[in-house]
């Protein structure tokens, strides 16, 4: 292997810079398909909220702002640790890469744990859409629709986080082996971009689900 073609450079690329740009562009293209995926859910949300605004307010009041706000902070903090993991890879710091990837994973698990607490509270209060759904008043069926959106949107968000946890486990193992350094950190960067995207989805979900008509 010549010096001009290191082992971390795939044969179809001329140089590492080209390889890095290709992987970054690839994940961005994937992320815009994700914008359209979540965009469909947000479109449905807007359509039904404009139809049944009172039900959306009533449903939102059943959600716990403290837990939702705490999770928002946890997720933003995990975005910081992810960004620091990428930084550690860029400066070839193996110890910090492992540290920050592990921190990001733990924060992600904290988020999912809080979500479990929230979901089980909804189960106890008969707020899971279906035959056992119960909400007093005429707007009950429309509040059920709000909760269908709540569970679909936060559920799909949680699925993305669980997938992220799996990918980060793989990333953690490879980082520990010292695979990533200043000339080759594309996987860390790509996973980071995915994780930040999932964070952005939550940045919109939090006010749209938890903070409606609170005044």
């Amino acid at each position: 292997m010549s010096d001009s073609h290191p082992s971390h450079l795939a044969h179809q690329f001329d140089h590492v810079e080209q390889q890095r740009q290709a992987s970054t562009m690839g994940i961005w293209l994937f992320l815009i398909t994700e914008i359209m995926f979540f965009g469909g859910l947000f479109t449905g949300y807007i359509v039904y909220r404009t139809m049944y605004p009172e039900a959306w307010t009533a449903g939102s009041h059943e959600l716990d702002i403290a837990l939702g706000g705490f999770n928002t902070a946890v997720l933003i903090f995990s975005s910081l640790t992810m960004a620091l993991a990428v930084h550690a890879a860029q400066v070839s710091n193996r110890r910090n890469q492992v540290l920050f990837i592990a921190a990001t994973m733990i924060l992600g698990l904290v988020f999912l744990g809080v979500k479990v607490v929230e979901y089980s509270a909804k189960f106890e209060h008969h707020l899971i859409p279906g035959p056992n759904f119960h909400f007093p008043g005429d707007i009950g069926t429309h509040v059920q629709l709000f909760f269908s959106f709540y569970f679909t949107m936060t559920g799909m968000h949680a699925v993305h986080m669980i997938i992220g946890e799996g990918i980060m486990l793989w990333l953690l193992i490879n980082a520990a082996k010292g695979r990533y350094h200043k000339d080759y950190y594309n996987p860390v960067e790509v996973v980071g971009l995915y994780w930040h995207f999932v964070d952005i989805v939550w940045i919109f979900l939090f006010p749209l689900l938890y903070l409606i008509g609170r005044h």
């Binding site: 293209l29 815009i32 359209m36 947000f42 359509v47």
Partner: peptide, 21 residues
């Protein structure tokens, strides 16, 4: 080029919102 890709995602989202509504 990446600004264009990211911007295209946002623009198509806005088109979806505008036409559906």
């Amino acid at each position: 080029l990446l600004w264009l890709i990211a911007g295209a995602g946002v623009i198509w989202l806005m088109i979806m919102f505008a036409l559906t509504l």
